[in-house]
């Protein structure tokens, strides 16, 4: 199991690096799916199988598919890939990358400096999660429902293409 964890971790990191370095959006998304799947494996090794399933379904499934739909709607071409290439110059990425690495170093230092015990890996099954969700976190669940509602309404409202709806006879008569 430990080996699985480390291998999955390595795959997750590599896939993510591929995502952020790829110029082609569809390829990047495919790597993203790989990354999400690897993270799902990590969840599994950490004893959260239900979360692993959700990760696969929602992240790797729904969200990525949604993004792919949008990309298809936008009708991107090879030019956009070239565009990405011109945008992604070392000059632009080296500064932010260094900054982020400093942040990572500090995070790592914080994590390692603390003398933390190893995980004794008690699986928490879906039943407990369900009880917690509909017990003490009921309010949070309702808020999530509202958030999703707002997301749907907002997406509908924003995504609407405002077209003039004029009857063709009227249009002609106006001309």
């Amino acid at each position: 199991m430990e080996l699985t964890f480390y291998v999955a971790s390595a795959i997750a990191i590599l896939a993510t690096i591929m995502v952020i370095t790829n110029y082609n959006m569809i390829h990047a998304l495919l790597y993203l799916v790989v990354s999400f799947l690897a993270v799902a494996v990590v969840f599994f090794t950490l004893g959260a199988p239900f979360m692993a399933a959700l990760e696969v379904i929602i992240y790797a499934g729904a969200i990525v598919v949604l993004i792919i739909f949008v990309i298809m709607m936008l009708n991107l071409t090879n030019e956009d890939v070239q565009q990405e290439k011109t945008w992604l110059r070392p000059k632009t990425w080296i500064g932010p990358a260094l900054l982020s690495l400093v942040l990572l170093a500090e995070l790592a230092y914080l994590v390692i400096a603390e003398d933390m015990p190893t995980i004794n890996n008690q699986p928490v099954d879906a039943r407990e999660v369900g009880l917690a969700l509909y017990g003490p976190y009921l309010l949070g669940v309702q808020l999530c429902g509202m958030l999703l509602m707002a997301g749907i309404v907002g997406a509908y409202h924003l995504g609407r293409q405002k077209k003039k709806v004029v009857h063709r006879f009227l249009e002609r008569s106006e001309i």
């Binding site: 199991m1 430990e2 964890f5 480390y6 971790s9 997750a12 990191i13 993510t16 690096i17 995502v19 952020i20 990354s35 993270v39 990590v42 090794t45 950490l46 992604l88 632009t92 990425w93 932010p96 990358a97 900054l99 982020s100 690495l101 942040l103 990572l104 995070l107 790592a108 994590v111 390692i112 933390m116 015990p117 190893t118 995980i119 004794n120 890996n121």
Partner: peptide
């Protein structure tokens, strides 16, 4: 299994930083 907690958190940190770099660049 005995996966050290540092490893899990480090993985999270690395993934987070990669995402951050991507947002920035």
């Amino acid at each position: 299994t005995n996966i050290p907690m540092e490893a899990g958190l480090l993985l999270a940190g690395i993934l987070f930083t990669l995402g951050l770099i991507s947002v920035l660049i």
